[in-house]
């Protein structure tokens, strides 16, 4: 695998609050993939949540406080920022600058951070220049073919306009059989607080998404947003359907479900 000549050697990981609390394995997979590709991962320890729940809920005053806090945390390093979530990346890239547009101090900072923030798959494909992750890049030993379907989450797809990167990466993984679900680009109904405040509508939307996933007859649903994946997982579990949900990084992970070994971290 040859990366772009100007590919950065370091990156800051903004892990997101949901990976921190609910899907740490996805975050660890992100770390392993990046390091396998020769990128040193920085994890600013003071990071918390980007503030999206408050922003989407309309509590912009609270959202601004969290945005400023996060900007302070991320501006300590000059390294590009990798966010393993389409919607949180969209928050940093698009909504921080809007939210803080009239703030003389944080407005420009938001612009600066926005310009060096990337969603995980985008970072791999557009910034590092990874075109194909093949068996030699990942020490993946999949003996059986893994049937999976890809759910393009809304803010990744229509917020950040990332359409191909995750698909390309998945297509390159040995032993993966990609199956397209019907109306794949349709929202799963999550929408943050929407799922609670408008639970009826959200549930109806989720039901359609689950039907689509089930009809694809796959083992796994892959996405780039843990939030949507947890929403889908919760629905599948309630239905008693045995389909797992995985973050893209978990499929690309050089060492799924095994302990970190030293050679991965040493030249």
């Amino acid at each position: 695998m040859t990366l772009k000549s100007d590919a950065p050697r370091r990156a800051q990981l903004f892990a997101t609050c949901l990976i921190e609390t609910l899907r740490p394995e996805a975050g660890m997979a992100v770390v392993r993939v990046l390091e396998k590709l020769g990128v040193t991962v920085e994890f600013p320890d003071a990071q918390t949540c980007c503030g999206q729940p408050a922003f989407n809920g309309g509590a912009w005053q609270d959202a601004r406080a969290m945005a400023k806090y996060t900007l302070d945390v991320l501006s300590k390093s000059k390294a590009p920022i990798v966010v393993p979530s389409g919607s949180c990346a969209d928050m940093l890239v698009h909504h921080y600058p809007e939210l803080l547009a009239s703030d003389p101090q944080y407005g420009p900072l938001a612009q600066e951070i926005s310009a060096r923030t990337y969603e995980f798959s985008q970072f791999l494909v557009d910034v590092l220049g990874v075109t194909k992750i093949s068996a030699s890049d990942v020490s993946r030993l999949t003996h059986d073919v893994l049937r999976l379907t890809y759910h393009p989450s809304c803010h990744l797809l229509r917020g950040l306009n990332i359409t191909q990167a995750p698909r390309e990466l998945l297509a390159g993984v040995e032993g993966v059989n990609m199956v397209e679900m019907p109306s794949a680009t349709e929202c799963c109904g999550f929408g943050g607080l929407f799922a609670i405040k408008m639970a009826d509508i959200s549930s109806a939307m989720l039901a359609r998404k689950l039907d689509a996933i089930e009809s694809a007859q796959v083992e796994t649903v892959v996405g780039c947003d843990v939030s949507c994946l947890l929403h889908i997982a919760g629905g599948l579990h309630r239905r008693g359907v045995n389909i797992t949900t995985k973050h893209l990084a978990e499929i690309l992970d050089p060492a799924p479900n095994i302990q970190i070994t030293e050679e991965m971290y040493l030249p």
Partner: peptide
């Protein structure tokens, strides 16, 4: 304004 998942369709 709450009746949306903000999916952007």
């Amino acid at each position: 304004p709450q009746a949306s998942s903000l999916c952007g369709a």
